[in-house]
Write a protein that binds this DNA or RNA. Structure first.
Lengths: 236, 236
DNA sequence: TGATCTTTTGTACGATAGTACAAATCACAT
DNA sequence: ATGTGATTTGTACTATCGTACAAAAGATCA
């Protein structure tokens, strides 16, 4: 009802709909959902507030469309890279390739959308922190399969580690990934300018290196359980 | 002007001010700052909206007071634990003790405030994701010193790792820590019920184990730099 | 050109936001 | 008991929110 498939396709002229999506993505990703008004988005896109209603009906609908736009391509890219990674023979290299297959699409473009991978991942991080209902629903039904696939693949590379530990560690990976996109300036600040938190390539290398080591850590249960907690008790 | 230091101290009767603080903390931590109205907070605390204005002047003032309440005690506790950790002789044990000194106060109570450590840390995670100005300011000037102290201590335990890498890895640690508190249900879901994401003790053990290994990973620069990137390039 | 779409604009409406403030109430020293 | 300062209540003001909708503008093809 909305698109017009006549003649030479579409998406040729400066598309207002796309401008609104891009502006919303950027604003949501940096300020959160509730802090951004429809009017803010319209203004940033050079559009009229009513135009947002026309294209996306509601503010939730706009968020939903942003997710629809990115989830598919990013999942596809991850699946491709995961499939390639699983073909790596050397076990150590394979683990690293799997982690890379998970991380890279989150930092770089998920499709041909202009460099939007990192922006969308940051958006996901913010929505997750805010407990956004729309996001929670679509994320659980879109990404859980992929997450399981990665967890299984990692588990195959590290069969001596219990699956529970793998789940925790991949959860930590996602948290680290999110946080790197949310506050890259903190890295620059704490490193006193020696590192650039906004440098995606650098962040990826650091994250992959650290995460591979984390996955390879000994399992919790069998790691000298009588020796744990050397200094600290849980209450003062 | 506000407190009344007459006779036997204060804070004896059911304190409305405390109830408002607790309710705000809980609501902000689960829904974000902008999604929660002053009226929501008042209702949750069993108070009148005007009462919030009376005690904290503005909504920002309320958030600020929450931070003031927790930052000091949590930093103090971390410093104590860090000092104790630095006295551990064995290098491996010391590193673990340092990480634990960083993690434990974030999960457990920062002071005698009822079990509020995890709640406050979750609040910080959410405010950080939302790019909240009030939070950003107070965090940078309150926690950066402590963060540097931890980074330095870790660096002393791992002198062969460049400080830049330590910064990145401790950044990942904080991200993982935040995310574990923000969406513990994801751990339960992905582990198919085998792990409980809300179990603080379990989360701490997993996080410490994984993070220690991550810190001990070889440095990026000197780790066979010609061999990196086995599968994936950075663009499709 | 004129008819028929789609898209954009402008404006308005009800709901709710943060905050201010006067009146009512409470706690307690004298 | 009573006066006094601290607290709580109730209400109101203005701003802004998401959304609806009619009119204007633009595009497409007979």
């Amino acid at each position: 009802m909305v698109r017009k498939p006549t003649s030479k396709e579409s998406a040729r002229k400066p598309n207002m709909r796309e401008a609104i999506l891009a502006a919303a993505e950027e604003l949501f990703a940096t300020n959160g959902f509730n802090a951004v008004s429809v009017r803010d988005i319209a203004q940033a896109a050079g559009a009229n507030p009513g135009s947002v209603t026309y294209h996306f009906k509601t503010k939730d609908g706009l968020l939903l469309e942003i997710y629809r736009r990115h989830c598919g391509p990013m999942n596809l890219r991850r699946s491709e890279l995961l499939a390639a990674a699983k073909r790596v023979r050397d076990l150590q290299d394979r683990l690293e390739a799997i982690v890379r297959a998970y991380v890279v699409p989150a930092f770089t473009s998920g499709s041909d959308l202009a460099g939007g991978g990192a922006r969308f991942t940051r958006l996901r991080a913010v929505m997750s922190a805010e407990g956004n209902e729309v996001a929670r629903k679509i994320i659980a039904q879109t990404f859980d399969d992929t997450s399981h696939a990665f967890i299984d693949a990692i588990h195959e590379s590290l069969p001596h580690i219990p699956r529970t530990d793998i789940v925790w560690r991949s959860h930590f990976l996602l948290g680290a990934l999110y946080y790197s996109l949310v506050t890259p300036d903190r890295v620059s600040r704490l490193s006193r300018g020696e590192a650039d938190g906004s440098d995606a390539a650098g962040a990826i290398e650091q994250l992959v290196q650290a995460t591979v080591a984390a996955f390879q850590a000994p399992a919790l249960d069998q790691a000298a359980p009588a020796r744990r907690r050397p200094v600290v008790s849980s209450k003062t």
